[in-house]
Nucleic acid binder design. Structure first.
Lengths: 133, 133, 133, 133
DNA sequence: GTGGTCTAGACCACT
DNA sequence: GTGGTCTAGACCACT
């Protein structure tokens, strides 16, 4: 899986990393049980700091997407992904609200808004169909 | 219009403020041409610093939602809100992507995802219909 | 002569007013010896504050473009306009420098830059030819 | 590069700073990719507040002349300066107009006006040719 | 060590 | 009375 870090982005590097790994898991590019690169290897690959990779892995562990074994390192959660529970839905709502508000304020139609939301979701599924080893 | 600031949140105060004013504009609670409180008044109301309010107002000005008259203070943009142009759609896509990825990763169905997206949009329109006293 | 004030502009109103009167003098729309409207009349016409008009007139007086008679009010300088002396050229240079710098930084060609400078100058002369009473 | 701040000037300090850095970029004294001093270092060098430097850097960032890397600090935009697009030309026209008006009002010839405009442009290019040690 | 955010407090220009 | 600018000083996130 190819990860691209934009050092000039406003998004902190550890967030970019977390997001992209989560996308990899969502598309199935990263399979349950699959090992992630070691913190050291990934940091050197991407030319970023050890701590930054570590922080991303910790967040993924805390939200239940990966497990961290003392020896094997980080592994994509094998038995059951974390559920889309109420707490997650509430967070989603909280994050969607300001985006929807700006869309409404700019006069975007509900159809266009939903089309963009659908597109964001289906792009991940599409990649899931394709399948990369 | 009631504004609530969560000092514990890790969303910066000026962002919380910007978002809520944008919601007010989206729902129509804040009418085009309507005056916003002066930076000093709002800051003291919310118990925050005047510079923090100032930053929120500046962002709203730069994105075209309010006008700042040097002596009269800030008023909601009267003639034509900023359009939902390509740049905005691209930003929206960029922001929706990681949220969709986490939803997919957590096994949320596309139906549920779209329901939440629709809900976020329609809640604003609903409030718009309702009208404020 | 028609004066338009943009209350939403970043340029202070007294500057807008000063500039437009100076343009009127430059194009000849305002003739030497011609009386300007009274402070009171102009302020009420434009819907702005007395003090604001007063400040504009004072600046024009200080730079030698108008004379202020206690009874007749403000009159366009009759006997000889203020010269484009060294002090003025130095001020011009100081103001042109940052604009030229940004133009160069943005890759504008010298031809284009000079075309815009020429245009700004000739538009005033063109209006001078036409002549409005 | 030597930066001089005039605390007496009525041009805000952050504008003086922005202008001088832009001149540095225009002349090539500041090379693409080159690091600017940290806000703290420059502020202490110039004897001004760090927030003032911050504001100048933010303006340069927003207009595309520098990039701000959260931890590395500010660097001159490397890949492609912001273009001299229509919006910039319109701004230039708006700023040139009152200067041209005053020049005409003071009886400056078009030749002299253009000579000063050319000089402002070429002085930057000249410095560019020269090269800095 | 870097910029980002926030506070507190001041003076000024504009109206 | 309004926003604009500036200072001084603090804590935090990121690396």
């Amino acid at each position: 899986m190819i990860i691209r870090i934009d050092l000039e982005s406003d998004t902190p590097i550890y967030n970019q990393l977390t997001n992209q790994i989560m996308e990899g898991i969502a598309t199935g590019e990263l399979k349950p049980g699959q090992a992630l690169p070691s913190v050291r290897a990934l940091a050197s690959d991407l030319g970023i700091n050890l701590h930054t990779v570590n922080k991303a892995y910790s967040i993924l562990k805390d939200s239940g997407f990966v497990q961290i074994h003392r020896q094997k390192g980080a592994v994509v959660q094998a038995g059951g992904m974390p559920p889309a529970d109420l707490a997650f839905e509430e967070r989603l709502e909280r994050e969607l609200r300001p985006m929807a508000a700006e869309a409404v304020g700019r006069g975007m139609t509900e159809e266009r808004w939903l089309a963009l939301c659908r597109q964001a979701f289906e792009q991940l599924h599409a990649r899931r169909e394709g399948g990369t080893i």
